[in-house]
Design a protein around this nucleic acid. Structure first.
Lengths: 340, 340
DNA sequence: AGGCTCGATGTTATCGATAACATAACATGA
DNA sequence: TCATGTTATGTTATCGATAACATCGAGCCT
């Protein structure tokens, strides 16, 4: 292995000091335009590649922002990450992405691993962590942001909405539209915490109207899958045949229920109404179109990135709000009857 | 800002030299078991966090593997990245993920940005790059892997399949099943190169049977979207009303066409057959189920990661094959008639 | 007993960029 | 005219871990 080409080599070739080369590679540093041109030319001729690892160490800045999400394979989180990524790029920051598989232990491991890389901020999904995971976040001397949730006891900053409230609102709306025999799929004790929150919101809304809120079907895998929805729907039909409206913790479940209905000749929404959560891309294109809640994942990502940028720009801490509530929107569509 | 806690601090507290602390943090280094325990305890009490940036610089190893994909929002690529990520983790490697938005210029920028971080290998999607992008890859002194394709002129290693051949096979199969008036949606000049390849495969297969291969509808956005499919399907119906079988460059398009048919009262597969590409999660659950091609994204990811691991383990270069062809599987389902 | 291997630890120099400070040249205004 | 900026550049020390080499004692073989 031949020796690596460094700034020193470039400096020699361009007839300047290494420091000037260093400056030439920073957009905003004061270097004579022609000198810079010479330096960049020399660098190019030598095939020099800037070495961040050295820069990171000396400047104590890595430009990394650690981001953990439950799964890459969920279009909601993918949208959020895409927005974060785009937005951070404008500030010269690079996301360091990892997924937890909906598992707090994996989250803890990821957080630890990421913190070693000295990110300038860390974003996690939701407010649930292992004890040690939380400690790590608290002791990290960088901005910590919990997104996609409104934790009761946030570590530091939060950007998101109350999943419980959003599902409460959807359920409430449906009850007012005349839905009285409701069942819920998803959010069992083993599942994603956001799904659990949604289920709690459902229960609260249904009991709030004095209706039966006990028709709950657990899902056993943490990840949302259509297959799981089929199983759950079968269970629902055998245990609670009276249910006229199924609300699901995710659009993917709702799609699974819808497809099971189509197979079984159950007319939606005439025989059964279905609602989901998440406003996945397919929701407005299924037949019937799917009632759901749009949690505006991109907005969450954007606000998260903006918050990070503001914090890193050293904005006076007291001027930056701790909690950023994001909007969500009920989308009442054809899959639920009574949409006037 | 108080001073950071370093290995030196830990060393003092544990009564050893910094070097021994360094060793204690490496799994395989030779350190007395009790000494290590003491060191880790001291580190814990001080709240020490290992600093990769320094380690990276000195050891000239970052543990990063740069990975660029066209989009995060595509479940095929998400599956691949998930597999890569899982597999690399076992070797202590961390993916550095970025997406190009199906744009080679963005890819070039990403490659350049990533190379500065001194990854130990770089994975890109497909064989199409800007001139400079390719040069950067060639001059990087690390393993380069192009995945999801079989480039004619690979930069170095490749892991994937021929999109053209896969689509050729699907089309050929459908023709043999009696489909003779075929149209294709996707893969216009502005679109994803894999979609272009698939279209070429379609054309080759159709002309190979002496049939009309000119019923092609371009899509204008690079990203696959259901909305785009609706537009394209409308164009297809007005320009080529005789088409009895629509093959799409992506399952998402196929789903869009299917939903448009359901709206318009067109019976699938009786009036029209539909096939997609990608074996998305919804494909076996739509009604009718969707004919498609499973490109086994996880397998691509796994093989890519295995290849990287082998190369970094210093496996004799001549023992590692340059090109790794991955399997794909035709899934003939209900959406295409004649599936006997 | 002498020589040798091996495990456990210490010492020193270094990875490559840049923060912090210093300097030189030249312009600007009272 | 000189004080005071301003711009462009150089010098030195440093970020924090670890590669490379050195040391030392214990066990083992002949």
């Amino acid at each position: 292995m031949t020796k690596a080409i460094t700034m020193k080599d470039v400096a020699e070739r361009a007839g300047v000091s290494p420091m000037t080369v260093s400056r030439a590679f920073k957009e905003d540093a004061s270097v004579n335009a022609e000198t810079r041109r010479n330096i960049l030319k020399a660098a190019d001729e030598l095939g020099y590649v800037f070495d961040s690892t050295a820069s990171n160490l000396r400047s104590q800045k890595t430009g990394f922002v650690a981001v953990t999400i439950p799964s890459l394979n969920n279009s909601n989180f993918a949208d959020t990450v895409t927005a974060i990524s785009d937005d951070l790029a404008e500030h010269g920051l690079q996301p360091l992405l990892g997924y937890t598989n909906y598992c707090v232990e994996r989250e803890e491991a990821l957080i630890e691993q990421f913190l070693r890389r000295k990110p300038e901020a860390i974003v996690v999904t939701g407010g649930q962590h292992t004890h040690r995971g939380r400690q790590l976040l608290e002791k990290a001397r960088i901005p910590v942001i919990e997104m996609w949730d409104q934790p009761q006891a946030p570590v530091a900053y939060s950007v998101g909405f109350s999943n419980a409230r959003a599902m409460h609102d959807l359920t409430d709306r449906l009850v007012r539209l005349g839905h009285h025999e409701l069942g819920f799929i998803g959010g069992g004790p083993q599942s994603d915490t956001r799904a659990q929150d949604r289920r709690n919101g459902f229960i609260r809304a249904v009991s709030g109207h004095g209706l039966d809120a006990s028709r709950l079907i657990d899902t056993t895998s943490t990840n949302f899958s259509i297959k799981e929805a089929h199983r759950a729907f079968q269970e629902l039909r055998s245990r609670f045949p009276e249910v006229k409206t199924v609300i699901c913790a995710s659009d993917l479940y709702a799609f699974g229920v819808l497809s099971a209905c189509q197979r079984a000749g159950i007319k939606v929404p005439n025989d059964l109404s279905i609602a989901g959560f998440g406003a996945f891309e397919i929701a407005p294109f299924t037949c019937p179109t799917l009632t759901t809640v749009d949690a505006k994942p991109s907005e969450i990502g954007q606000k998260t990135a903006d918050l990070i940028a503001a914090l890193l720009a050293g904005e006076a801490a007291q001027e930056v709000p701790i909690n950023h509530e994001t909007r969500y929107e009920l989308l009442i569509r054809e899959s639920t009857s009574g949409c006037v």
